[in-house]
Amino acid sequence: MVDEKKTINVDDAEIDRLFEEYQKTKDINLRNELVNRHLYIAEIVAKKFVNRGIEYDDLYQVACMALINAVERFEPNKGYKFTSFATPTIMGEIKRYFRDRALLIRLPRRIYETSSKIKLATEILSTKLKRPPKVEEIAEHLNMSLEEVLEVMEASTNYLPQSLDQTMYEDEEMTLGDVLGKSDDSLTQIENIEAIKKAIDKLSPIEKEFVQKRFFEEKTQREIADEMKVSQMYISRLEKKVLKKLKDFIDGTKMPI
């Protein structure tokens, strides 16, 4: 893993030169130097996600891996600074890390911690080998037995939530989503109508008349004003008052007098 020194006051011209040289040579030492110079970004972004159920060290490792990927993908001739490119890249990777670990069942701590190490080792070896690593290579990298790695991989997979699009049985089209209960929108609509009826019953006679003309007969404020022999301004204020009364009642607050 790269050295964790922090270098915040970097020289933009020097950074651009290093990136241009790295694009040409793909020298691993150049890449590590660029990563080391920008580790502070990984630290800052990782700290934004602490106290959300995942240890800071894990977040920092994910941020560092995202930083390495950002260094490899950055193109200095695009006209923007590396910090502007790396920050959203790292944030996106950490958010994806959270999504991937939104497990329906909490993993045992040993399995969870080892699974995180295996994932990180897989990413490191993939970058190094330019291909997905074999299980034997992951085990060697982590100084673990092949059986231990396979055990944790299998356990982690079993704890992951299943897709609702997954079929329940082979050769059948019924999915898990097909057997789950669903909310009935028509029931919600009935509840809303009943709530509105009760709210209207609390209105004064003139307010009920206004509601009838405005919302059931769909008349304009001008038409209602002419029929009720009042100004349009009065109708406008009445509408605001009625709507507030209805909202307050439906929300469960006290009806204004």
Score class of each variant (00 low, 15 high):
residue 3 D to T: 11
residue 5 K to A: 09
residue 5 K to T: 11
residue 10 V to W: 05
residue 12 D to K: 07
residue 16 D to S: 08
residue 23 Q to K: 07
residue 29 N to W: 06
residue 30 L to V: 04
residue 34 L to E: 01
residue 38 H to G: 06
residue 38 H to N: 11
residue 40 Y to M: 11
residue 47 K to F: 09
residue 47 K to L: 09
residue 52 R to K: 13
residue 54 I to R: 05
residue 56 Y to E: 15
residue 61 Q to P: 05
residue 62 V to F: 02
residue 71 V to D: 03
residue 72 E to S: 12
residue 74 F to N: 02
residue 75 E to M: 13
residue 75 E to I: 12
residue 76 P to Q: 00
residue 78 K to N: 12
residue 80 Y to P: 07
residue 84 S to T: 14
residue 85 F to D: 00
residue 86 A to G: 00
residue 88 P to Q: 00
residue 89 T to W: 09
residue 90 I to H: 02
residue 102 A to W: 11
residue 107 L to H: 14
residue 108 P to R: 02
residue 110 R to K: 13
residue 113 E to Y: 11
residue 118 I to Q: 00
residue 120 L to C: 09
residue 124 I to S: 04
residue 132 P to W: 08
residue 137 E to A: 01
residue 143 N to H: 09
residue 143 N to V: 11
residue 144 M to Y: 06
residue 153 M to F: 10
residue 153 M to D: 10
residue 154 E to C: 08
residue 159 Y to E: 01
residue 160 L to D: 10
residue 166 Q to D: 10
residue 166 Q to S: 07
residue 166 Q to M: 12
residue 167 T to F: 11
residue 173 E to D: 14
residue 178 D to F: 06
residue 188 T to F: 12
residue 188 T to I: 15
residue 190 I to H: 07
residue 190 I to L: 10
residue 194 E to P: 04
residue 196 I to L: 14
residue 200 I to C: 05
residue 202 K to M: 09
residue 205 P to V: 03
residue 211 V to Y: 00
residue 216 F to I: 13
residue 218 E to G: 09
residue 223 E to F: 04
residue 225 A to M: 01
residue 225 A to Y: 00
residue 225 A to P: 02
residue 226 D to Y: 06
residue 226 D to H: 05
residue 227 E to P: 10
residue 228 M to T: 07
residue 231 S to G: 05
residue 237 R to Y: 08
residue 244 K to P: 05
residue 252 G to S: 02
residue 252 G to H: 03
residue 256 P to W: 01
